[in-house]
Design a protein around this nucleic acid. Structure first.
Length: 460
RNA sequence: UCCAGAGUAGCUCAAUGGUAGAGCAGCUGGCUGUUAACCAGCGGGUUGUAGGUUCAAGUCCUACCUCUGGAGCCA
């Protein structure tokens, strides 16, 4: 008999004389004449209730159907006499496929997220993490659907790279050379002898190669893993995370901000529409204001404010900040929080930042002071999107490289884009996990990644 | 990396410097179309690690480890 997923069994339009379900026992309640087994197979948040009558020849096996055990059950799908479910299964056969003893770490009661993090290999079997990772899967597909609907072309940019995309953080070196050899000879490693004949790293951004493809295929995006060796220990940073980077030719900062806003809204709307059970769980157990906040975000345009105006708002707010607000300085977390959480109370796009605090590739504005950069800030998380219009003028880009003391030889192919058929183009990066945090209300990035990599932690 | 907080039973947490406890989980039995089932009983501890103060340390002091929250950096 073919296996039926629990989600399909529970949504069946009619009773079934024959059904087979397979999954893991969440809990069992024994009576004298029968047992109730709650079975979950991860296809949906809900369990299916199975009645195993004591007269069944397989009933003796029930002692092994403990919490955590894997079981396979055949029987009939019937309307439930109980209150909490419409369908249940009256078992005819029971097979315990994989036993689980009393040391099984997941109990019927709630566990803290910190504890579940220590058992990352078992936490997908919990309601919360099963929901998070079902939503993660759905969100990834929504990303592709959004871009496909708008004729964007998906580009696989390299994970091993020789360029460090200046300003994007510390790099993980990729090498096949024996690092221990260095300490003995005391000589510096000559990476020209390394595998690729030069120093190479794990990518910190697919932007530069994405620009190459945008300047050929017009609208493109990348979606893949990204690595930062920064020693950051916060709930919003991971050493390995996934990032989405669209890049558009013949597009200015305005178009970039428009795309970022419609993208963020599309992703939220898709999950709200397709994962109602998971969203209800998050709203109930993770963040009671979640659904209300997401609806608010969907219902109105993001606020847009220039960096200069944002600084003025902060200066005139009367708020006392730990760090002073000053034109020319980066906005601190507390400043961003004030803008999104107190002043505008919605996602806020800040644009036109001072050139001193932004990387070399951003387009210089005519005022000589700012660049065409934009960040989308959201309540509770902070920066979720960072993007810009790219400097497409060859002489200007050359000047930026000089100003940032970067070697033009390392960017020869990037400069060539400006030399041959250069066009205005723009793009941004959206942190996939941060988006997932915003949608689920889960406040720690380690809890929206299957196996988080953070400084000092690569277990599993 | 910096600042703050926390590490006690499998889990969540108690315990004025003075005999380490409870709920849940587990085990045994009972009972009921139950549903975070219920009732009774039972077992369960090197109090993160190493030192120190004290007649006496889970509690005070020092160092280290781990985790959490915040900051910086950013997605």
């Amino acid at each position: 008999m073919k296996r039926t997923l629990v989600k399909h069994a529970l949504s069946s339009p009619s009773p079934m004389d024959e059904i087979k379900v397979q999954g893991w026992v969440r809990t069992r309640r024994d009576a004298k004449a029968f047992s109730f087994v709650e079975l979950n197979d991860g296809s949906t948040l809900k369990n299916i209730q199975i009645i195993i009558d004591a007269t069944l020849s397989d009933y003796e096996k029930i002692v092994d159907a403990n919490t955590g055990a894997a079981v396979s059950i055949t029987g009939k799908l019937v309307a439930s006499q109980g209150k909490n479910q419409s369908w249940e299964i009256v078992a005819e056969t029971l097979e315990v496929v994989g036993k689980s003893d009393s040391s099984y770490p997941l109990q019927k009661k709630g566990h803290s997220q910190e504890y579940l993090r220590e058992i990352a290999h078992l936490r997908p079997r919990s309601n919360l993490f099963g929901s998070v990772f079902r939503v993660r899967s759905r969100l990834a597909q929504a990303v592709h659907r959004f871009f496909d609907e708008q004729d964007f072309i998906y580009v696989h940019t390299p994970i091993i790279t020789a360029s460090d995309c200046e300003g994007a953080g510390e790099l993980f070196r990729v090498t096949t050379m024996d690092q221990n050899a260095k300490s003995e000879s005391d000589a510096l490693i000559d990476y020209s002898n390394d595998f690729f004949g030069k120093s190479t790293y794990l990518t910190v951004s697919g932007q530069l190669p994405a620009e190459v493809f945008a300047c050929a295929l017009s609208n493109v995006y990348t979606f893949g893993p990204t690595f930062r060796a920064e020693n950051s220990n916060t709930s919003r940073h991971a050493s390995e995370f996934w990032m989405i980077e669209p890049e558009m030719a013949f597009c200015d900062l305005q178009g970039d901000m428009d795309l970022a806003e419609s993208f963020v809204k599309y992703l939220i709307q898709d999950i709200v529409n397709t994962c109602p059970e998971e969203m209800n769980l998050f709203n109930k157990f993770v963040d009671k204001g979640l659904q209300e906040r997401l609806k608010f975000v969907l219902d109105r345009p993001f606020q847009r404010v220039s960096y200069t105006d944002a600084v003025d708002i902060l200066l005139q707010s009367g708020e006392t900040f730990e760090y002073p607000v000053a034109y020319g300085a980066n906005l601190q977390s507390e400043h961003e929080r004030f803008l999104t959480e107190k002043h505008f109370k919605c996602p806020t796009t800040v644009y036109n930042y001072p050139k001193e605090i932004k990387p070399f590739y951003m387009r210089a504005n005519d005022d000589g002071k700012t660049v065409a950069a934009m960040d989308v800030l959201v309540p509770g998380i902070g920066e979720i999107v960072g993007g810009s219009q790219r400097e497409e003028r060859e002489d200007q880009l050359q000047a930026h490289l000089d100003h940032h003391k970067l070697n033009p030889e390392d960017y020869w192919w990037y400069m060539d884009l400006r030399k041959y058929g250069s066009v205005p183009h723009s793009g941004f990066g959206l942190g996939f996990e941060r988006m997932l945090m915003f949608i689920t209300g889960v406040s720690n990035i380690r809890d929206v990644i299957p196996f988080a990599r953070t400084p000092g932690s690569a277990e599993f």
